[in-house]
């Protein structure tokens, strides 16, 4: 084959044109007919403004918005559909997941948690490597939070409704004073859980494990000494629970376990069932009970058949 300038230039341009037709234009026949999915809704003005900030600050380089069939983490309850993205330009699928996928982050946390988190992510999540976004200023941060709280669209709206309802209840509970607040919190735990003591005896190893979990997950809000005065405290209302007031208030191991596992919607307390396996939740609960409440029910009755691994 003789390679003339014409053959090289026109030939490669023709090939490119053909391939653009096949892999860019032809798919448009499919994708242009995408109907909005069942959770789709348009964005409000403040949410759209927040999305611009999300783009300007390159959030997309660490947070995907693309839930896959193989995902287990945040948002895995709903696999992404083409119809979720019909209003997105540019689309923000992301290519790296240094932080969690945010497709369904809306309503996972109340707004005050986000304020603390954007102010410095390590205030709420001690192991996070996300940059602080206080430099955005309050207005911009507010819009960014509106955008994040809209992720998941109609599903997010339902979760936000739940957050707002329980936020009002939680504030009422908190403002009624420590006695009423603790009672309000315990009342909402199924009786079965309230009756269960921590089934495992206190051990040095267990406390050491609990200490590590506490530092990695809890310290930002509840503080290093469990008094609820962690660095996130100034932004959070109702404020993080002060464990040191809980002595003689019938806080069982089961209550601690349940609250850590499920979180407390409306407050900044997230659920940890995805992040911590059973033993870690029991261990951190007992760490709190022994060190901060000074009242642990570990290994008391009722308990079942003796555990096989105990010394």
């Amino acid at each position: 084959m003789k390679m003339t300038p014409l053959a090289v230039v026109v030939g490669s341009l023709l090939i490119l044109a053909t391939i653009v037709f096949v892999v860019v234009l032809l798919p448009y026949v499919n994708t242009s007919q995408t109907a909005p999915s069942d959770i789709f809704r348009q964005r409000a003005a403040d949410e759209a403004a927040g999305r611009k900030l999300y783009i300007a600050n390159g959030c997309v380089y660490c947070h995907s918005q693309s839930i896959r069939t193989i995902d287990w983490g945040l948002g895995a309850e709903r696999i992404a559909q083409a119809g979720d993205y019909v209003a997105d330009y540019p689309i923000l699928l992301g290519s790296q997941r240094t932080g969690p996928d945010l497709s369904q982050d809306g309503g996972e946390h109340p707004d005050d948690w986000h304020v603390a988190h954007f102010t410095n992510p390590r205030y709420t999540r001690p192991l996070s490597i996300m940059p602080a976004f206080r430099f955005l200023g309050d207005d911009h941060m507010g819009n960014l939070i509106r955008y994040v709280q809209s992720l998941g669209m109609k599903d997010a709206d339902r979760r936000m409704q739940r957050q707002r309802f329980w936020k009002t209840e939680a504030i009422k509970g908190y403002e009624a004073g420590p006695d009423a607040n603790v009672q309000w919190l315990s009342e909402h735990i199924p009786q079965g859980w309230r009756d269960v003591p921590n089934p495992y005896p206190t051990s040095e190893a267990g406390l050491a494990r609990g200490h590590k979990i506490y530092q990695d997950f809890c310290l930002g809000c509840h503080g290093p000494v469990g008094d609820g005065m962690g660095p996130a405290q100034p932004w959070i209302y109702p404020p993080p629970l002060n464990f040191t007031i809980l002595k003689n208030r019938e806080i069982s191991g089961g209550i601690l376990y349940y609250q850590i596992m499920n979180g407390i919607t409306g407050t900044a307390m997230p659920y940890f069932k995805r992040e911590l396996e059973s033993e870690k939740i029991w261990d951190v609960g007992n760490y709190v009970a022994v060190n901060f409440i000074n009242d642990s029910d570990a290994n008391t009755e009722p308990k079942g058949i003796d555990a096989a691994y105990e010394p």
Binding site: N57, G58, N120, P121, A132, F135
Partner: peptide, 22 residues
Amino acid sequence: TELVAPDLTENIGGIVFGRVRP
């Protein structure tokens, strides 16, 4: 460096990781 020590450049908007990477 920011992925190792995120608060080293805390609140310097122009060099926040999401702008540095692109």
